[in-house]
Amino acid sequence: DVEPGKFYKGVVTRIEKYGASINLNEQVRGLLRPRDMISLRLENLNVGDEIIVQAIDVRPEKREIDFKYIP
């Protein structure tokens, strides 16, 4: 289970102007929005990149997770 405040290694699977889709595994994925990137710009991400993200909002009833990137 993903817990708010914990850090996870994820893989960038899609990049859109509203954010990047991050997969932690086949069943768990979430969104990294541009506003939640401290020192990383969306255009510097590539599909397949592995990054460390922090879960900031977990809504299991909607199967949604928001991530934050902290270098």
Rank of each mutant, 00 (worst) to 15 (best):
Val2Asp: 02
Pro4Val: 15
Gly5Asn: 07
Lys6Gly: 07
Tyr8Ile: 02
Val11Lys: 09
Val12Ser: 00
Thr13Arg: 04
Arg14Met: 10
Arg14Gln: 11
Arg14Phe: 09
Ile15Arg: 00
Ile15Gly: 00
Glu16Gly: 14
Glu16Met: 14
Glu16Asp: 15
Lys17Leu: 11
Lys17Gln: 12
Lys17Arg: 13
Tyr18Cys: 13
Tyr18Asp: 13
Tyr18Ser: 11
Ile22Met: 01
Asn23Leu: 14
Asn23Cys: 15
Asn23Ser: 15
Asn23Ala: 15
Leu24Met: 04
Asn25Lys: 05
Glu26Thr: 12
Gln27Tyr: 14
Gln27Pro: 04
Val28Ile: 14
Val28Trp: 15
Arg29Tyr: 10
Gly30Trp: 03
Gly30Asn: 02
Leu31Cys: 14
Leu31Lys: 05
Pro34Ser: 10
Pro34Arg: 08
Asp36Ser: 04
Met37Trp: 04
Met37Gly: 04
Met37Tyr: 03
Ile38Thr: 11
Ile38His: 12
Ser39Phe: 13
Ser39Pro: 15
Ser39Glu: 14
Arg41Asp: 10
Arg41Val: 12
Arg41Met: 12
Arg41Pro: 06
Leu42His: 03
Asn44Thr: 11
Asn44Ile: 05
Asn44Asp: 15
Leu45Glu: 00
Leu45Pro: 00
Leu45Trp: 01
Asn46Arg: 15
Asn46Tyr: 08
Val47Ala: 02
Gly48Tyr: 02
Asp49Glu: 06
Asp49Arg: 02
Glu50Pro: 10
Glu50Tyr: 14
Ile52Gln: 03
Ile52Lys: 03
Ile52Pro: 00
Val53His: 00
Ala55Tyr: 06
Ala55Met: 07
Ala55Thr: 05
Ala55Gln: 02
Asp57Phe: 12
Val58Ile: 11
Val58Phe: 07
Val58Gly: 03
Val58Trp: 09
Glu61Cys: 07
Glu61Trp: 05
Lys62Trp: 08
Lys62Cys: 10
Lys62Val: 12
Arg63Thr: 09
Arg63Pro: 09
Glu64Ile: 11
Ile65Phe: 07
Asp66Met: 12
Phe67Asn: 02
Phe67Leu: 09
Phe67His: 03
Phe67Cys: 05
Lys68Thr: 07
Tyr69Ile: 04
Tyr69Glu: 06
Tyr69Cys: 06
Ile70Phe: 11
Ile70Lys: 06
Pro71Asn: 07
